[in-house]
């Protein structure tokens, strides 16, 4: 995985498979603490402690088409390489939350990548699910919420290609503006 955005796209698939209807992704950037924290939480079916222990093992997977599952091990590796780590909290029926920490100034801290593209694709390709994306830099916040989008769209489906590219531009412009804000 080249960047944070692709990790998000990948990890979110786990949430979708776990039957989540709401997936909240947050990227928190803190220059003072020199942290970049990625949190993905869902309201899916969750896992028991035993499964949580096994899940970072690349040879653990729930799928049947192949016997390896690399999504979480790759994210853990990526975070570890950038001086951070991975934490998973989950309990059956309560959903799952995955937190990956990166040292922001670390040479191996992955770039953010195409966050607008990933979030708009996820929203457009899973019209029955809701996604919230929060990006925090210092004290400035941008929140994208498909529940708001759907309310505005009314009958127009969120999966319409024109809507997907509109959402992509909207997230992109807002994140660009967020980057311009003073960080402290």
């Amino acid at each position: 995985m080249k960047d944070i955005a692709l990790h998000i796209m990948d990890i979110v698939q786990n949430s979708i498979s776990a039957g989540a209807t709401l997936i909240i992704t947050a990227v928190l950037e803190d220059k003072v603490e020199d942290n970049l924290i990625l949190i993905i939480s869902d309201n899916g079916r969750g896992m028991d402690q035993e499964t949580v222990m096994k899940i970072t093992d690349p040879y653990y997977t729930t799928r049947t088409t192949r016997s390896v599952g690399l999504g979480i091990p790759l994210l853990r590796h990526s975070a570890g390489q950038a001086g951070g780590g991975l934490k998973i909290t989950s309990s059956p029926g309560q959903g799952t939350s995955i937190t990956a920490t990166f040292r922001r100034s670390h040479f191996d801290c992955p770039p953010l990548g195409d966050i607008p593209g990933v979030i708009s694709l996820l929203a457009g390709c899973n019209p029955s699910l809701d996604f919230v994306y929060r990006h925090v830099i210092g004290k400035s916040v941008y929140v994208f919420d498909t529940m708001e989008i759907k309310e505005v769209l009314e009958k127009v489906p969120i999966s319409d290609p024109a809507v997907i590219s509109y959402m992509k531009e909207m997230i992109g412009e807002n994140l660009e503006e967020l980057l311009l804000m003073p960080e402290t």
Partner: peptide, 22 residues
């Protein structure tokens, strides 16, 4: 600073999306 797309703008675009779909 240039105008950033917002939910309000999306509302304005809605009609156009709908007519294309129709």
């Amino acid at each position: 600073m240039k105008k950033v797309k917002s939910l309000a703008d999306l509302k304005k675009m809605k009609e156009q999306f709908q007519s294309n779909i129709n």
